[in-house]
Each structure stands twice: as structure tokens, then as C-alpha cells.
Write a protein that binds this DNA or RNA. Structure first.
Length: 357
DNA sequence: TTGTTAATAT
DNA sequence: AATATTAACA
């Protein structure tokens, strides 16, 4: 009776929300085929349920609906907490994107169901590490587990230029302690896995979100040249993240930072920038005067790109990570900097020292 | 601890 | 080719 109406109404709500979701996802059809499929399936399931409920209502029977509910309800609850705010995954991203202050609540308030779920989702997004996340409630839902797994992989691959490790992710069930998410266990796992043969940790993909946090921390600390790995790690508040990882990422970031800007229009082909050796470094012939600036690693305006802008942009010079894919450079302008690893002041100093001593 | 470099893996 | 991990060194 009223049960029926309620149920029906709820289903309609779900369906509506799902369809909206599907519209959004549709844009990323290519990148998130499974996600799309999942949502579609869910919609179907709910439609089916509605019709079944109708039948029940007519016949006065109530029985088989339980199954369908059991099957697709959890999925929806997992992905679309309609009750609260009809968030989508992306919106969730936005949420902890700009505001940095509310990180405290993050650790405080969770432990009701919803927060647990969002935590879960966060981890799904932030890490490509497959294991240790699905804690419980998979008893009846292998299917969902698989789908989720697939989505995780897909998501990881979709948003990043590097395909992460897509293939090696499917050996994570058995009886392992399923509860933990943090780094300690990851390490242990890694040791277990690679202990015999090698000792390489599983490669970690720096997802957009992760990188955003990284940038955030960087911003707060005053830029890539003053921030230290430890500080960054602490600000990022990702557990399992190690200093070394941050260090490595920071290193890469800095390299990007001091790379030549893409500004030089290569239209004139014979445009090989002429470099001149000044005091042991390569500088563009045009302006020797910037040599000093270049060595300081500070505000170089010479061959090295603008440095302090990265506060807002993802990667200093070029990046097809985040934004629209801006038609990759069809022409390579390789000549750039003569020595790729030629870097900061320390190097120069070292060179000098070496020569002196 | 941090910054670099180089070797190696993905 | 780009990235990530690691070890070694200053």
C-alpha cells in the first residue's frame, strides 16, 4: 500500500538521478565505458523493479523484489548517495579541491556510513593500488566487486597520461586482511609480493586529485623551491604516502618547472637557438646577462620557462593532464636545452668546486 | 632531512 | 619517452 508508493517514488528518484548521472558520464563515454554501463544497468534494474513492484501490488505478492533490491541497491548507495546531495564523483573532487581548511573535519566526522563511503571513493580515486580497500559486504556481490575493480582501473587510466599498471591488478582477494588502507600495510604487502625476487614497490600513479593536493601543499608552502618533501607530505594528508614518493614527484615537478617554455615559435625552421658557454653553463646567445639568473634557479626569464606561475596551473609548461587536450605539438621542438639534466645552482657550484679542487 | 644523480622498472 | 622507485652520496 503505502509501502508500494514509497518504494515506487524512491525508485523514480533513483532513476532520475541516475539518468542525470548518465548524461554527465556520457561525455566520457570513451574513458568510462564501464561506469556508463554500470549506471545504465542500475537504471534498468530500477525500472524493472518498479514494474515488478507494480505487479506485486496488483497481485498482492511481495517476494522477488528483494533480490533485485539486494542486487542494485548497494551499488547505488555506494556511488550515488542521493539522500544527501546527489553528489557525483567529480563533484566530490571539487569539494576538497579549493577549500583547504576543512581538512580537519575530514578526520573528525567520518565513521558514519556516508563518510565511510566517500573515504572509500577517495581512495578509489587517489590510489591505483587495488587491494585492501574493499573491506566487507562483498559476500553477495562478487559482480559488483568486479565492476568496481574495473572502474577503478579504468578511472586510473582515463585521467592520466600514463596508463599506470593496468594489467597486474587482478590478484587481490584471497584471505588477506581486508581492513586496512594505510601505507604500512601497503608496504608490508609490497614486501610480501616482491620480497623474494625484487623489492620494488608497486608503482604509484599520481592521479589528478593527488597532484592537486600536491600543488595545494606547494602553494601553501610557498612554491616548489622552498617546499620540502616532508612538509608537503604532511600537508597532503594522504596516508601511505612516503617522503620518498613526494620527493620524487617534487623532483619531477621541479624539472618541469625549469624546462624551457614552449613559447618560442618554431616557425622559422632553421631556428636552432644558439647556445654559448658562459662560465660552464649553456645560455642562449642572445642574452648572456641572464646567465646569473638562470643559475640561481630563481626567476629566470631566459631559456627557462616562467617559474612561479605554477601556483595555479598543473604543470608549468605543457600538460595534457588536466585540461582539454590541446592538440599536442605536432612539431617537435627538440633542440631546447642542450643538456637535459642540467639543473640547479648546486650543480653549477659543484662544477666550479670540482674544477677548483 | 633534503637535493641530486644514476640505474632501473613500468 | 615519460614516470616512478631506489640507492648512494653530499
Amino acid at each position: 500500500m503505502k509501502n508500494y508508493n514509497q518504494k515506487r517514488e524512491r525508485c523514480c528518484e533513483y532513476i532520475e538521478a541516475l539518468e542525470e548521472e548518465r548524461r554527465k558520464i556520457n561525455v566520457f563515454q570513451r574513458e568510462l565505458p564501464l561506469c556508463l554501463e554500470l549506471v545504465t544497468q542500475a537504471i534498468e534494474a530500477y525500472k524493472k523493479e518498479i514494474s515488478e513492484t507494480t505487479m506485486e501490488n496488483i497481485c498482492g505478492q511481495s517476494e522477488c523484489s528483494e533480490q533485485t533490491t539486494g542486487e542494485c541497491g548497494p551499488v547505488l548507495d555506494l556511488f550515488i548517495p542521493i539522500k544527501h546531495c546527489s553528489t557525483s564523483i567529480e563533484e566530490e573532487n571539487e569539494e576538497d579541491d579549493d577549500d583547504d581548511e576543512h581538512e580537519s573535519h575530514e578526520t573528525d566526522i567520518d565513521f558514519n556510513d556516508k563518510s565511510m563511503k566517500s573515504e572509500w571513493l577517495k581512495y578509489v580515486q587517489l590510489w591505483n593500488q587495488p587491494d585492501t580497500v574493499l573491506s566487507d559486504k562483498e559476500g553477495s556481490q562478487h559482480e559488483i566487486g568486479r565492476v568496481v575493480e574495473a572502474i577503478k582501473r579504468n578511472d586510473g587510466a582515463a585521467f592520466h597520461q600514463t596508463p599506470c599498471s593496468e594489467t597486474s591488478n587482478e590478484k587481490n582477494e584471497e584471505g588477506k586482511s581486508p581492513t586496512t588502507i594505510n601505507g604500512g600495510d601497503q608496504k608490508k604487502e609490497a614486501e610480501k609480493d616482491y620480497g623474494r625476487r625484487g623489492q620494488r614497490k608497486q608503482r604509484r600513479c599520481w592521479s589528478q586529485e593527488l597532484h592537486r593536493r600536491f600543488l595545494n601543499a606547494l602553494k601553501q608552502l610557498g612554491g616548489p623551491h622552498v617546499a620540502t618533501p616532508k612538509q608537503i607530505r604532511e600537508l597532503m594528508k594522504i596516508d601511505g604516502l612516503t617522503n620518498d614518493e613526494v620527493k620524487s614527484h617534487l623532483q619531477k615537478y621541479r624539472l618541469h618547472t625549469r624546462r624551457p617554455s614552449q613559447t618560442t615559435p618554431n616557425n622559422n625552421n632553421s631556428q636552432t637557438q644558439h647556445f654559448v658557454v658562459v662560465g660552464g653553463i649553456w645560455v642562449p646567445q642572445s642574452n648572456h646577462s641572464t646567465a646569473n639568473a638562470a643559475t640561481t634557479g630563481g626567476t629566470t626569464t631566459g631559456i627557462y620557462g616562467p617559474i612561479v606561475s605554477p601556483l595555479l596551473s598543473d604543470w608549468p609548461s605543457h600538460s595534457n593532464i588536466g585540461r582539454t587536450i590541446t592538440e599536442e605539438g605536432s612539431n617537435k621542438r627538440i633542440i631546447r636545452c642542450s643538456s637535459p639534466a642540467m639543473s640547479s645552482s648546486t650543480r653549477i657550484i659543484k662544477m666550479k668546486n670540482a674544477k677548483i679542487s
